[in-house]
Design a protein around this nucleic acid. Structure first.
Lengths: 212, 212
DNA sequence: TGAAAACTACCACCAAGGGAGTAGTGCGGC
DNA sequence: GCCGCACTACTCCCTTGGTGGTAGTTTTCA
Protein backbone atom coordinates (compact mmCIF):
# COMPACT_ATOMS: atom_id res chain seq x y z
CA UNK A 1 0.00 0.00 0.00
CA UNK A 2 1.48 3.31 -1.17
CA UNK A 3 0.57 6.32 0.96
CA UNK A 4 0.33 9.62 -0.88
CA UNK A 5 0.32 13.27 0.14
CA UNK A 6 -1.33 15.65 -2.34
CA UNK A 7 -0.03 19.22 -2.53
CA UNK A 8 -1.94 21.70 -4.67
CA UNK A 9 -3.62 25.00 -3.94
CA UNK A 10 -6.76 24.07 -5.87
CA UNK A 11 -9.10 22.09 -3.59
CA UNK A 12 -11.21 20.95 -6.53
CA UNK A 13 -8.25 19.46 -8.32
CA UNK A 14 -7.04 17.77 -5.13
CA UNK A 15 -10.47 16.28 -4.71
CA UNK A 16 -10.50 14.90 -8.22
CA UNK A 17 -7.07 13.36 -7.97
CA UNK A 18 -7.80 11.97 -4.52
CA UNK A 19 -10.93 10.25 -5.77
CA UNK A 20 -9.04 8.78 -8.69
CA UNK A 21 -6.30 7.47 -6.45
CA UNK A 22 -8.61 6.06 -3.80
CA UNK A 23 -10.35 3.94 -6.41
CA UNK A 24 -7.07 2.31 -7.34
CA UNK A 25 -5.88 -0.84 -5.62
CA UNK A 26 -2.70 -0.32 -3.62
CA UNK A 27 -2.84 3.47 -3.49
CA UNK A 28 -4.07 5.63 -0.65
CA UNK A 29 -4.26 9.39 -0.05
CA UNK A 30 -3.15 10.02 3.52
CA UNK A 31 -3.22 13.79 3.40
CA UNK A 32 -3.83 16.92 1.38
CA UNK A 33 -2.03 20.25 1.60
CA UNK A 34 -3.13 23.53 0.06
CA UNK A 35 0.21 25.32 0.48
CA UNK A 36 3.93 24.68 0.70
CA UNK A 37 4.01 25.35 4.43
CA UNK A 38 1.21 22.91 5.06
CA UNK A 39 2.97 20.36 2.87
CA UNK A 40 6.13 20.58 4.97
CA UNK A 41 4.16 20.06 8.12
CA UNK A 42 2.09 17.17 6.83
CA UNK A 43 5.05 15.43 5.22
CA UNK A 44 6.88 15.40 8.53
CA UNK A 45 3.79 14.27 10.40
CA UNK A 46 2.46 11.63 8.01
CA UNK A 47 5.73 10.44 6.42
CA UNK A 48 4.01 9.37 3.19
CA UNK A 49 5.61 7.11 0.58
CA UNK A 50 5.09 9.77 -2.05
CA UNK A 51 4.29 13.44 -2.50
CA UNK A 52 2.39 14.64 -5.54
CA UNK A 53 3.42 18.27 -5.84
CA UNK A 54 2.06 21.16 -7.83
CA UNK A 55 4.50 23.89 -8.86
CA UNK A 56 2.33 26.98 -9.34
CA UNK A 57 1.15 27.72 -5.85
CA UNK A 58 0.48 30.98 -4.10
CA UNK A 59 3.05 31.86 -1.45
CA UNK A 60 5.72 29.20 -1.20
CA UNK A 61 5.93 27.72 -4.68
CA UNK A 62 6.54 24.09 -5.60
CA UNK A 63 10.28 24.30 -6.16
CA UNK A 64 10.82 26.05 -2.84
CA UNK A 65 8.61 23.49 -1.16
CA UNK A 66 10.56 20.65 -2.70
CA UNK A 67 13.86 22.14 -1.60
CA UNK A 68 12.55 22.64 1.91
CA UNK A 69 11.22 19.08 1.99
CA UNK A 70 14.63 17.68 1.07
CA UNK A 71 16.31 19.97 3.56
CA UNK A 72 14.11 18.76 6.38
CA UNK A 73 15.25 15.23 5.55
CA UNK A 74 12.29 14.04 3.57
CA UNK A 75 13.74 11.31 1.37
CA UNK A 76 10.70 9.61 -0.09
CA UNK A 77 9.55 9.99 -3.65
CA UNK A 78 8.37 13.43 -4.81
CA UNK A 79 6.50 13.63 -8.10
CA UNK A 80 5.92 17.02 -9.62
CA UNK A 81 2.43 17.30 -11.11
CA UNK A 82 1.91 20.58 -12.88
CA UNK A 83 0.73 22.33 -16.02
CA UNK A 84 4.13 23.82 -16.83
CA UNK A 85 6.23 22.15 -19.49
CA UNK A 86 8.78 24.96 -19.33
CA UNK A 87 12.40 23.95 -19.59
CA UNK A 88 13.44 25.96 -16.56
CA UNK A 89 10.77 24.47 -14.35
CA UNK A 90 11.73 20.93 -15.27
CA UNK A 91 15.41 21.57 -14.69
CA UNK A 92 14.77 23.38 -11.42
CA UNK A 93 12.57 20.54 -10.20
CA UNK A 94 15.20 17.93 -11.00
CA UNK A 95 17.92 19.99 -9.36
CA UNK A 96 15.75 20.35 -6.28
CA UNK A 97 15.38 16.58 -6.02
CA UNK A 98 12.22 15.63 -7.90
CA UNK A 99 11.88 11.96 -8.80
CA UNK A 100 9.42 12.52 -11.60
CA UNK A 101 7.62 15.21 -13.53
CA UNK A 102 4.12 14.71 -14.91
CA UNK A 103 1.98 17.21 -16.75
CA UNK A 104 -1.58 17.71 -15.62
CA UNK A 105 -3.00 16.70 -18.96
CA UNK A 106 -1.75 13.18 -18.29
CA UNK A 107 -4.42 10.50 -18.71
CA UNK A 108 -5.78 9.31 -15.34
CA UNK A 109 -4.73 5.76 -16.13
CA UNK A 110 -1.19 6.88 -16.92
CA UNK A 111 -1.04 8.95 -13.75
CA UNK A 112 -1.87 5.91 -11.63
CA UNK A 113 0.67 3.74 -13.39
CA UNK A 114 3.29 6.47 -13.10
CA UNK A 115 2.73 6.74 -9.38
CA UNK A 116 3.32 3.03 -9.00
CA UNK A 117 6.41 3.08 -11.21
CA UNK A 118 7.85 6.05 -9.36
CA UNK A 119 7.27 4.44 -6.00
CA UNK A 120 9.51 1.62 -7.23
CA UNK A 121 12.25 4.18 -7.64
CA UNK A 122 11.81 4.49 -11.37
CA UNK A 123 12.09 8.03 -12.69
CA UNK A 124 8.92 9.02 -14.51
CA UNK A 125 8.38 11.83 -17.00
CA UNK A 126 5.62 12.83 -19.33
CA UNK A 127 6.56 11.95 -22.88
CA UNK A 128 5.93 15.54 -23.91
CA UNK A 129 9.00 16.46 -21.86
CA UNK A 130 11.36 14.29 -23.86
CA UNK A 131 12.37 17.15 -26.09
CA UNK A 132 12.77 19.51 -23.18
CA UNK A 133 14.84 17.02 -21.23
CA UNK A 134 17.03 16.16 -24.20
CA UNK A 135 17.71 19.80 -24.96
CA UNK A 136 18.32 20.39 -21.30
CA UNK A 137 20.97 17.72 -21.22
CA UNK A 138 22.49 18.94 -24.44
CA UNK A 139 22.56 22.51 -23.19
CA UNK A 140 24.27 21.45 -20.05
CA UNK A 141 26.97 19.58 -21.91
CA UNK A 142 27.45 22.38 -24.40
CA UNK A 143 27.65 24.79 -21.50
CA UNK A 144 30.33 22.77 -19.80
CA UNK A 145 32.36 22.41 -22.96
CA UNK A 146 32.10 26.09 -23.56
CA UNK A 147 33.07 27.02 -20.06
CA UNK A 148 35.98 24.60 -20.19
CA UNK A 149 37.83 27.30 -22.08
CA UNK A 150 37.40 29.60 -19.12
CA UNK A 151 39.42 27.39 -16.82
CA UNK A 152 42.82 28.67 -15.80
CA UNK A 153 45.83 26.46 -16.30
CA UNK A 154 45.89 25.46 -12.68
CA UNK A 155 42.21 24.60 -12.67
CA UNK A 156 42.56 22.42 -15.76
CA UNK A 157 45.49 20.67 -14.14
CA UNK A 158 43.48 19.96 -11.04
CA UNK A 159 40.46 18.84 -13.03
CA UNK A 160 42.69 16.30 -14.73
CA UNK A 161 43.84 15.02 -11.35
CA UNK A 162 40.24 14.66 -10.22
CA UNK A 163 39.50 12.62 -13.34
CA UNK A 164 42.28 10.29 -12.27
CA UNK A 165 40.53 9.66 -9.00
CA UNK A 166 43.01 11.55 -6.87
CA UNK A 167 42.05 13.06 -3.51
CA UNK A 168 42.61 16.72 -2.66
CA UNK A 169 45.39 15.70 -0.29
CA UNK A 170 47.20 13.78 -2.96
CA UNK A 171 46.80 16.56 -5.50
CA UNK A 172 48.17 19.02 -2.97
CA UNK A 173 51.21 16.84 -2.45
CA UNK A 174 51.86 16.33 -6.13
CA UNK A 175 51.56 19.99 -6.98
CA UNK A 176 53.34 21.02 -3.79
CA UNK A 177 50.60 23.41 -2.68
CA UNK A 178 48.29 23.44 0.36
CA UNK A 179 45.19 21.26 0.43
CA UNK A 180 43.15 24.39 1.12
CA UNK A 181 44.39 25.83 -2.15
CA UNK A 182 43.41 22.71 -4.01
CA UNK A 183 39.93 23.05 -2.56
CA UNK A 184 39.68 26.58 -3.88
CA UNK A 185 40.58 25.43 -7.37
CA UNK A 186 38.15 22.53 -7.13
CA UNK A 187 35.37 24.85 -6.01
CA UNK A 188 36.01 27.35 -8.81
CA UNK A 189 36.31 24.57 -11.38
CA UNK A 190 33.02 23.01 -10.35
CA UNK A 191 31.32 26.37 -10.45
CA UNK A 192 32.66 27.24 -13.90
CA UNK A 193 31.59 23.88 -15.29
CA UNK A 194 28.21 23.90 -13.57
CA UNK A 195 28.92 20.62 -11.80
CA UNK A 196 28.04 19.64 -8.26
CA UNK A 197 30.79 17.31 -7.11
CA UNK A 198 34.18 15.96 -8.03
CA UNK A 199 32.53 12.72 -9.08
CA UNK A 200 30.41 14.55 -11.62
CA UNK A 201 33.55 16.32 -12.77
CA UNK A 202 35.39 13.02 -13.25
CA UNK A 203 32.44 11.55 -15.14
CA UNK A 204 32.20 14.61 -17.33
CA UNK A 205 35.89 14.60 -18.19
CA UNK A 206 35.89 10.92 -19.07
CA UNK A 207 32.66 10.96 -21.02
CA UNK A 208 33.70 13.95 -23.08
CA UNK A 209 37.31 12.87 -23.47
CA UNK A 210 38.39 16.32 -22.33
CA UNK A 211 42.06 15.54 -21.95
CA UNK A 212 42.63 13.36 -24.98
CA UNK B 1 66.90 25.45 -1.16
CA UNK B 2 65.44 21.96 -0.71
CA UNK B 3 65.80 20.50 2.78
CA UNK B 4 66.10 16.74 2.95
CA UNK B 5 65.75 14.13 5.69
CA UNK B 6 67.62 10.88 5.10
CA UNK B 7 66.13 7.69 6.56
CA UNK B 8 68.20 4.51 6.35
CA UNK B 9 69.51 2.10 8.94
CA UNK B 10 72.97 1.98 7.38
CA UNK B 11 75.04 4.90 8.67
CA UNK B 12 77.63 4.42 5.96
CA UNK B 13 75.11 4.72 3.19
CA UNK B 14 73.54 7.78 4.81
CA UNK B 15 76.95 9.34 4.97
CA UNK B 16 77.61 8.72 1.30
CA UNK B 17 74.29 10.09 0.15
CA UNK B 18 74.56 13.07 2.47
CA UNK B 19 77.94 13.98 1.06
CA UNK B 20 76.65 13.67 -2.47
CA UNK B 21 73.68 15.90 -1.71
CA UNK B 22 75.61 18.53 0.17
CA UNK B 23 77.86 19.05 -2.83
CA UNK B 24 74.88 19.88 -4.98
CA UNK B 25 73.66 23.42 -5.36
CA UNK B 26 70.18 23.94 -3.91
CA UNK B 27 70.04 20.75 -1.85
CA UNK B 28 70.67 20.39 1.86
CA UNK B 29 70.52 17.50 4.30
CA UNK B 30 68.81 18.77 7.46
CA UNK B 31 68.64 15.48 9.31
CA UNK B 32 69.37 11.77 9.33
CA UNK B 33 67.35 8.99 10.91
CA UNK B 34 68.48 5.42 11.49
CA UNK B 35 65.01 4.02 12.18
CA UNK B 36 61.36 4.58 11.42
CA UNK B 37 60.63 5.92 14.87
CA UNK B 38 63.44 8.40 14.64
CA UNK B 39 62.23 9.43 11.19
CA UNK B 40 58.76 10.23 12.53
CA UNK B 41 60.24 12.35 15.24
CA UNK B 42 62.66 14.22 13.02
CA UNK B 43 60.11 14.79 10.27
CA UNK B 44 57.79 16.48 12.74
CA UNK B 45 60.61 18.49 14.27
CA UNK B 46 62.46 19.55 11.10
CA UNK B 47 59.60 19.65 8.60
CA UNK B 48 61.86 18.95 5.63
CA UNK B 49 60.86 19.50 2.01
CA UNK B 50 61.59 15.88 1.24
CA UNK B 51 62.24 12.53 2.88
CA UNK B 52 64.51 9.98 1.27
CA UNK B 53 63.31 6.70 2.71
CA UNK B 54 64.80 3.22 2.74
CA UNK B 55 62.36 0.29 2.87
CA UNK B 56 64.37 -2.55 4.42
CA UNK B 57 64.93 -1.34 7.93
CA UNK B 58 65.11 -3.21 11.20
CA UNK B 59 62.09 -2.66 13.43
CA UNK B 60 59.60 -0.34 11.82
CA UNK B 61 60.06 -0.85 8.10
CA UNK B 62 59.84 1.77 5.38
CA UNK B 63 56.23 1.17 4.39
CA UNK B 64 55.05 1.38 7.98
CA UNK B 65 57.14 4.50 8.45
CA UNK B 66 55.64 6.08 5.37
CA UNK B 67 52.11 5.27 6.49
CA UNK B 68 52.80 6.71 9.93
CA UNK B 69 54.32 9.83 8.38
CA UNK B 70 51.22 10.45 6.32
CA UNK B 71 49.00 9.74 9.29
CA UNK B 72 50.78 12.29 11.42
CA UNK B 73 50.02 14.83 8.71
CA UNK B 74 53.36 14.93 6.93
CA UNK B 75 52.47 16.08 3.45
CA UNK B 76 55.80 16.87 1.86
CA UNK B 77 57.44 14.72 -0.75
CA UNK B 78 58.60 11.23 0.23
CA UNK B 79 60.92 9.43 -2.10
CA UNK B 80 61.53 5.73 -1.55
CA UNK B 81 65.19 4.83 -2.06
CA UNK B 82 65.79 1.12 -1.78
CA UNK B 83 67.35 -1.96 -3.33
CA UNK B 84 64.04 -3.75 -3.81
CA UNK B 85 62.51 -3.76 -7.27
CA UNK B 86 59.80 -6.16 -6.11
CA UNK B 87 56.34 -5.55 -7.45
CA UNK B 88 54.72 -5.73 -4.04
CA UNK B 89 57.08 -3.22 -2.50
CA UNK B 90 56.50 -0.69 -5.26
CA UNK B 91 52.74 -1.05 -5.07
CA UNK B 92 52.73 -0.89 -1.27
CA UNK B 93 54.88 2.23 -1.33
CA UNK B 94 52.58 3.98 -3.80
CA UNK B 95 49.52 2.99 -1.81
CA UNK B 96 51.13 4.34 1.33
CA UNK B 97 51.69 7.69 -0.32
CA UNK B 98 55.16 7.65 -1.87
CA UNK B 99 55.87 10.33 -4.45
CA UNK B 100 58.70 8.47 -6.10
CA UNK B 101 60.61 5.23 -6.05
CA UNK B 102 64.30 5.04 -6.87
CA UNK B 103 66.54 2.00 -6.78
CA UNK B 104 69.84 2.26 -4.97
CA UNK B 105 71.84 1.44 -8.08
CA UNK B 106 70.71 4.77 -9.51
CA UNK B 107 73.60 6.91 -10.80
CA UNK B 108 74.47 9.73 -8.36
CA UNK B 109 73.80 12.31 -11.02
CA UNK B 110 70.37 10.84 -11.69
CA UNK B 111 69.58 10.70 -7.98
CA UNK B 112 70.24 14.43 -7.62
CA UNK B 113 68.16 15.30 -10.65
CA UNK B 114 65.36 13.05 -9.45
CA UNK B 115 65.30 14.75 -6.09
CA UNK B 116 64.92 18.11 -7.78
CA UNK B 117 62.23 16.84 -10.12
CA UNK B 118 60.31 15.21 -7.29
CA UNK B 119 60.45 18.36 -5.19
CA UNK B 120 58.64 20.08 -8.06
CA UNK B 121 55.83 17.59 -7.57
CA UNK B 122 56.83 15.41 -10.47
CA UNK B 123 56.53 11.68 -9.76
CA UNK B 124 59.88 9.97 -10.27
CA UNK B 125 60.62 6.30 -10.82
CA UNK B 126 63.66 4.30 -11.81
CA UNK B 127 63.35 3.22 -15.42
CA UNK B 128 63.89 -0.37 -14.34
CA UNK B 129 60.49 -0.21 -12.65
CA UNK B 130 58.60 0.56 -15.83
CA UNK B 131 57.83 -3.06 -16.41
CA UNK B 132 56.85 -3.62 -12.80
CA UNK B 133 54.62 -0.56 -12.78
CA UNK B 134 52.98 -1.43 -16.06
CA UNK B 135 52.27 -4.96 -14.91
CA UNK B 136 51.12 -3.58 -11.61
CA UNK B 137 48.55 -1.45 -13.31
CA UNK B 138 47.55 -4.28 -15.57
CA UNK B 139 47.25 -6.65 -12.64
CA UNK B 140 45.13 -4.18 -10.77
CA UNK B 141 42.80 -3.73 -13.69
CA UNK B 142 42.62 -7.44 -14.34
CA UNK B 143 41.95 -7.95 -10.66
CA UNK B 144 39.13 -5.47 -10.67
CA UNK B 145 37.60 -6.92 -13.80
CA UNK B 146 37.81 -10.35 -12.27
CA UNK B 147 36.27 -9.28 -9.02
CA UNK B 148 33.53 -7.45 -10.88
CA UNK B 149 31.87 -10.84 -11.25
CA UNK B 150 31.74 -11.14 -7.49
CA UNK B 151 29.46 -8.14 -7.13
CA UNK B 152 25.88 -8.83 -6.13
CA UNK B 153 23.10 -7.40 -8.23
CA UNK B 154 22.51 -4.58 -5.81
CA UNK B 155 26.17 -3.68 -5.67
CA UNK B 156 26.43 -3.55 -9.46
CA UNK B 157 23.35 -1.36 -9.53
CA UNK B 158 24.88 1.04 -7.05
CA UNK B 159 28.22 1.04 -8.84
CA UNK B 160 26.41 2.16 -11.95
CA UNK B 161 24.79 5.00 -10.04
CA UNK B 162 28.19 6.08 -8.73
CA UNK B 163 29.51 6.16 -12.28
CA UNK B 164 26.70 8.55 -13.12
CA UNK B 165 27.94 10.93 -10.45
CA UNK B 166 25.05 10.37 -8.08
CA UNK B 167 25.36 10.98 -4.35
CA UNK B 168 24.52 8.35 -1.75
CA UNK B 169 21.44 10.31 -0.80
CA UNK B 170 20.16 10.41 -4.35
CA UNK B 171 20.87 6.71 -4.87
CA UNK B 172 18.98 5.94 -1.68
CA UNK B 173 16.00 7.89 -2.92
CA UNK B 174 15.98 6.31 -6.34
CA UNK B 175 16.27 2.79 -4.99
CA UNK B 176 13.92 3.56 -2.13
CA UNK B 177 16.33 2.35 0.57
CA UNK B 178 18.10 4.12 3.44
CA UNK B 179 21.25 6.10 2.81
CA UNK B 180 22.99 3.97 5.43
CA UNK B 181 22.25 0.92 3.34
CA UNK B 182 23.66 2.55 0.25
CA UNK B 183 26.82 3.23 2.20
CA UNK B 184 27.11 -0.44 3.07
CA UNK B 185 26.86 -1.44 -0.58
CA UNK B 186 29.35 1.25 -1.59
CA UNK B 187 31.80 0.06 1.02
CA UNK B 188 31.50 -3.57 -0.02
CA UNK B 189 31.76 -2.67 -3.69
CA UNK B 190 34.92 -0.64 -3.17
CA UNK B 191 36.44 -3.44 -1.17
CA UNK B 192 35.65 -6.08 -3.75
CA UNK B 193 37.08 -3.98 -6.54
CA UNK B 194 40.14 -2.92 -4.59
CA UNK B 195 39.34 0.77 -5.01
CA UNK B 196 39.67 3.55 -2.49
CA UNK B 197 36.89 6.00 -3.23
CA UNK B 198 33.74 6.46 -5.27
CA UNK B 199 35.68 8.71 -7.61
CA UNK B 200 38.11 5.90 -8.38
CA UNK B 201 35.12 3.65 -8.89
CA UNK B 202 33.53 6.06 -11.35
CA UNK B 203 36.81 6.41 -13.23
CA UNK B 204 37.25 2.67 -13.35
CA UNK B 205 33.75 2.04 -14.65
CA UNK B 206 34.07 4.65 -17.38
CA UNK B 207 37.57 3.72 -18.45
CA UNK B 208 36.72 0.06 -18.69
CA UNK B 209 33.27 0.56 -20.17
CA UNK B 210 31.87 -1.77 -17.56
CA UNK B 211 28.21 -1.07 -18.23
CA UNK B 212 28.22 -0.91 -22.02
C1' DT C 1 14.22 -27.70 6.55
C1' DG C 2 18.46 -25.73 7.67
C1' DA C 3 22.49 -23.06 6.33
C1' DA C 4 24.40 -19.46 3.56
C1' DA C 5 24.21 -15.36 1.15
C1' DA C 6 22.05 -11.08 0.10
C1' DC C 7 19.66 -7.28 1.55
C1' DT C 8 18.22 -4.23 4.77
C1' DA C 9 18.93 -0.92 8.77
C1' DC C 10 21.11 1.53 12.43
C1' DC C 11 24.93 3.33 15.37
C1' DA C 12 29.24 5.85 16.27
C1' DC C 13 33.26 7.84 14.49
C1' DC C 14 36.47 10.07 11.64
C1' DA C 15 38.19 11.64 7.05
C1' DA C 16 37.24 14.10 2.99
C1' DG C 17 34.82 17.37 0.33
C1' DG C 18 32.87 21.81 -0.47
C1' DG C 19 30.97 26.84 0.42
C1' DA C 20 31.99 31.59 1.70
C1' DG C 21 34.94 34.89 2.85
C1' DT C 22 39.58 37.41 3.49
C1' DA C 23 44.01 38.46 1.92
C1' DG C 24 48.88 38.67 0.19
C1' DT C 25 51.89 38.16 -4.03
C1' DG C 26 53.34 38.41 -8.73
C1' DC C 27 52.55 39.43 -13.51
C1' DG C 28 51.02 41.62 -17.84
C1' DG C 29 48.58 45.41 -19.98
C1' DC C 30 46.95 50.21 -20.33
C1' DG D 1 51.88 53.88 -11.82
C1' DC D 2 47.47 51.31 -11.34
C1' DC D 3 44.12 47.64 -12.56
C1' DG D 4 42.79 43.09 -13.14
C1' DC D 5 43.73 38.33 -12.97
C1' DA D 6 45.82 34.12 -11.47
C1' DC D 7 47.65 31.86 -7.79
C1' DT D 8 48.43 31.07 -3.26
C1' DA D 9 46.89 30.41 1.73
C1' DC D 10 44.02 30.56 5.58
C1' DT D 11 39.63 30.33 8.63
C1' DC D 12 35.01 28.80 9.92
C1' DC D 13 31.37 25.79 9.09
C1' DC D 14 28.67 22.31 7.34
C1' DT D 15 27.75 18.16 4.30
C1' DT D 16 29.13 14.01 2.34
C1' DG D 17 31.70 9.88 2.23
C1' DG D 18 33.64 5.76 4.20
C1' DT D 19 34.69 2.18 8.04
C1' DG D 20 33.55 -0.66 11.81
C1' DG D 21 30.27 -3.27 14.14
C1' DT D 22 25.60 -5.37 15.18
C1' DA D 23 21.47 -7.40 13.73
C1' DG D 24 16.89 -8.57 11.64
C1' DT D 25 14.69 -10.28 7.31
C1' DT D 26 14.26 -12.46 2.92
C1' DT D 27 16.02 -15.50 -0.85
C1' DT D 28 18.34 -19.28 -2.45
C1' DC D 29 19.81 -23.61 -2.58
C1' DA D 30 21.52 -28.03 -1.12
Amino acid sequence: MISILLVDDHPMLRQGVAQLIELEEGLMVVGQAGSGEEALHLAAQLDPDMVLLDLNMQGMNGIATLQALREQGFNACVMVFTVSDQHDDVVAALRAGADGYLLKDTEPEVLLQSIKAASQGQPVFSPQLARVLASGVRDQKADSAERMGELTGREAQILQCIAQGKTNKRIARELAIAEATVKVHVKNTLKKLGLRSRVEAAVWVLENRVFE
